[in-house]
């Protein structure tokens, strides 16, 4: 099977999890198709004002 393996991954969803997965995969040497239905990545986190426990800006 190893010969037929395709070195690319489709990541469905460009929220914080999808972005992190895509970054890790791309940095590890795989071609990534990041699929997101809205016009920009960021997902739910981009709607948040700040994050605890540090109250950092979520952007």
């Amino acid at each position: 099977m190893s010969k037929d393996v395709i070195g690319s991954v489709m990541v469905v969803g460009g929220g914080i999890a999808g972005m992190q997965s895509a970054i890790d995969l791309a940095d590890s040497g795989y071609y990534v198709h990041l699929v997101e239905k809205s016009p920009s990545i960021g997902g739910a986190m981009s709607q948040l004002d700040k994050t605890f426990p540090t109250n950092d800006c979520a952007m």
Binding site: S2, G7, A17, D24, L25, Y30
Partner: peptide
């Protein structure tokens, strides 16, 4: 974020022979 990296590596374990073939 933990899961995301974990999923990346899980996919990576599977595709290790094809690493860097499409980049």
């Amino acid at each position: 974020v933990v899961d995301a990296s974990a999923a990346a590596t899980a996919a990576g374990e599977l595709l290790a022979p094809a690493r860097n073939t499409l980049t």
